[in-house]
Design a protein around this nucleic acid. Structure first.
Lengths: 335, 335
DNA sequence: TTGTACGCGTTATCAA
DNA sequence: TTGATAACGCGTACAA
């Protein structure tokens, strides 16, 4: 059914090794043979089998990308960046989504190793769980790059400066006169959420303010959770004046819900998000995060390893986060 | 470096075939041997090589998904659906993005065949180009499912009823008193765009109205184009009263731009989109399209073929599109 | 129940 | 410049 180099060897009367060599543009074959081989290949409808090639050559031309949720702009921009660079290298990418499930992450990583990907990008890892599978991965000897860091594990990493992002938004709100601030934490497996929250607490404290427990929502993820939180906020007797959301998706959910409840943003409630997603009409004050660039950078670094363009020590790069002021935060006068 | 079944055979003193059988839970092995094998595998850190397995078994456990742009909610919801079903089957998915480039689509399809994926989902195909590569694909004997149809090519297909969607939005606008309607066509390689536009023209005509050429924008794609179009519309001397956008992303771009130009939606301009994307605060009247469900359905159908759960004739399924009225279309009194 | 031998489609190493 | 032949890691008849 499937035509192989053996078939085309038989057809041309040449040896398999000759076919292979000619097909792969190796030097040392006469132009005549080369033509003959190419013609026969075309003729028979030969399609190289990358699986066999991979078995023999120890390289599959595939990399794996593990993310949480392709539906979220944060991740799909990273994905876009990774794909672009992979494409430039003639590579193909396996996309795996773990959601919030630790077991899924483990399974995906193992599946990628079994499929013998040439490299792996994990962006970002889940937190609040064991990291054994990463140490195992390290043993496995497949190059990988992380968006995030793991204590004691040496590999290339990237990071967004989440603590600083959290600090910036808090400072901003404070400077606009807000003190009753609500904080919507993201997924419980998110280190970014943890860092931003710490920054929030610390920054508040440095201004002599204690965070109000009633104003922090623990695990929000996606627009539905954002809306649920928004509904609760709108119904609070002593509503906060501002809310910091883990990401723009959640922020949009909050906005939808509070508007449905008859409130105005920012008149009745100021809102800040993270990610600066582009497809959005609301003039949301947010923190811009270079996800697309990070995706490209992650992939570049991975290919540096795969192609051994770089063999020295591991690098750790941190991307800045930058507050973008738009119109979802109101200047408060009546403190 | 990498431990193989041969290594574990040597370690246990058993034969390779015994290892293979025990590892794959084949019947006919004593519990004792099985344990011994498993223990040794664990001990040595054995990781099955799916590449070798694939070569031997003729099945890679991977499928390919080809889309245009992972950044667009339309596609990432399809992707999510596909991934979910693939995961349930223990399969992994290669994600390929073609953008608007015909050559990229061809390359990706060929790459997938060379990697010997067990099946392929192409959603949706590019239009206005040759389809030779699909006929070749058919020859290749790899199962595939299309979102869209190709004249003369028999395979399983899904479809959204784009013509009807176009009809619905036009009827709606007409019923709200609009006659000066702008139409923003989507990517030039989109059949959906073509069908919706035909419906628009036909529906208008059936009401005795001729479409105004000045009001149709040819190839818009993504939010940037949407904004460019919005800017142009805002500056028009005899502005249309309503605009139909190819998708919500474009619609959001148009809204951003016209609002920046000082216009109100829908007071000054009514806007309709397609896709009903969830992450959006604007009360956009739009057409809901079951992308996530379609993704799952596409994958189900593909696995029906891969696993030979279904071997009879090809099926063609059409999903309905449904107008969702929100608040971006204004009732016009002064006709 | 276990072992032997071969095939899967390529690449790579040597001889010729 | 070309041709045997042996890997690559695993599955699987078939034989023991």
């Amino acid at each position: 059914m499937n035509v192989t180099i053996a078939d085309i060897a038989k057809a041309t009367g040449l040896a398999k090794s000759t076919i292979s060599g000619a097909l792969n543009n190796k030097s040392g074959f006469s132009e005549k043979t080369r033509r003959r081989v190419l013609a026969a290949a075309e003729e028979l409808g030969y399609v190289p089998n990358e699986i066999a090639r991979g078995l023999s050559s120890k390289s599959t031309g595939s990399i794996g990308l593990i993310i949480k949720d392709i539906t979220n702009p944060f991740y799909n921009h990273i994905t876009k960046g990774v794909q672009e660079i992979a494409g430039e290298h003639g590579y193909t990418v396996f996309l795996c989504s773990s959601g919030e499930e630790h077991q899924a992450e483990i399974k995906h990583i193992q599946a990628m190793v079994r499929k013998r990907v040439d490299g792996l990008i994990i962006a970002p890892l889940l937190e609040e769980v064991t990291f054994d599978h990463f140490f195992e991965l390290k043993e496995q000897n497949v190059p990988f790059v992380l968006l995030g860091k793991i204590q004691g594990l040496s590999c290339d990493t990237y990071d967004f400066d989440d603590y600083d992002g959290g600090r910036q938004v808090t400072e901003h709100l404070l400077s606009m006169g807000h003190t009753r601030i609500c904080f919507v934490r993201g997924p419980k497996t998110s280190k970014a959420a943890k860092l931003r929250y710490s920054a929030f607490i610390d920054t508040l404290k440095s201004h002599g303010i204690e965070a109000d427990e009633r104003y922090v929502f623990q695990n929000a993820n996606g627009i539905a959770d954002g809306m649920a939180v928004g509904k609760q906020i709108a119904a609070m007797p002593d509503r906060p004046t501002a809310v910091i959301c883990f990401d723009d998706v959640i922020a949009i959910g909050v906005i939808k819900a509070v508007m449905e409840a008859g409130l105005q943003v920012p008149e009745d409630l100021s809102i800040i998000g993270f990610d600066d997603i582009e497809v959005n009409t609301f003039p949301l004050t947010t923190v811009s995060i270079p996800t697309y660039e990070a995706g490209k950078a992650l992939a570049w670094t991975l290919f540096d390893r795969i192609l051994q363009r770089r063999t020295s020590g591991f690098q750790h790069i941190t991307f800045e986060q930058k507050l973008i002021e738009r119109a979802s935060v109101r200047q408060l006068h009546n403190k």
